[in-house]
């Protein structure tokens, strides 16, 4: 992950762009809501972009959360193409990120929540410097074994809703082991985004791998 580049072609000093993908309902917005205060607590200047599928509900939820200046939250419509807007044609998201940087010159990190999709969704490297894929234990512990491109290629795999493991008969340790295996040992972190558990480990990783703070 040291290949991360913090410079973009047309602007020398830009914020790090961090994508958050994963199936609908896996807890992406919940993770964003946890990451905002955790990043702010470490003095990191942030902004957020959401790619809602059919409404601006996620953007509104984050704007109204009271966690962040609502002006720092942008919504990008995906025209029913949640894959396209983060992969084949990420231009509208790139424009939204550039615009946030213009409006908030000190911004260091932009979180970009994908509209939610299947296991095949991946982020373009032209759009993000780092991206994570969020799955949840209630989706079944066979998800990592299905080797979806999202699970395999993300810089970080987050397995969320660990609190639900006992209720859905998931062996968490095995799920994490298999996920790490299919990912060739690249990072897999466990979270409970209802209660904020495991979020600090994600922020540690972002500080180290994306912001190059140690």
């Amino acid at each position: 992950m040291s290949r991360l580049a913090l410079t973009h072609a047309d602007a020398p000093m830009t914020a790090a762009r961090v994508g958050i993908g994963g199936p609908v309902g896996s807890g992406k917005t919940a993770l964003v809501e946890q990451l905002i205060p955790a990043l702010q607590a470490r003095g990191i200047d942030i902004a957020v972009i959401t790619n809602d599928l059919v409404t601006a509900e996620d953007a509104e939820r984050v704007r109204r959360s009271g966690l962040i200046d609502p002006e720092r939250v942008s919504a990008v419509e995906a025209g029913a193409c949640p894959h396209t807007v983060i992969r084949e044609d990420p231009t509208l998201n790139i424009e939204a990120a550039d615009e946030l940087e213009r409006r908030f010159p000190g911004v260091e990190l932009i979180l970009l929540e994908s509209g939610g999709d299947n296991l095949a969704s991946t982020f373009s490297r032209d759009l993000t410097d780092f991206w994570m894929f969020v799955i949840d234990v209630a989706g079944g512990d066979d998800i990592p074994r299905k080797r979806g491109p999202g699970v395999i290629r993300a810089d970080l795999l987050v397995i969320n809703k660990v609190d639900l493991a006992p209720h859905v008969g998931v062996d968490l340790a095995r799920m994490q082991r298999e996920a790490t295996e299919v990912r060739g040992g690249r990072p897999v972190l466990l979270t409970n985004c209802r209660r904020g558990e495991g979020v600090d480990a994600i922020v540690d990783l972002l500080e180290r791998e994306v912001l190059f703070r140690t």
Partner: peptide, 12 residues
């Protein structure tokens, strides 16, 4: 239509 200029998000 695959030219990557965001056209797919506009229905006009």
């Amino acid at each position: 239509s695959a030219f990557p200029a965001g056209g797919f998000a506009f229905s006009w």
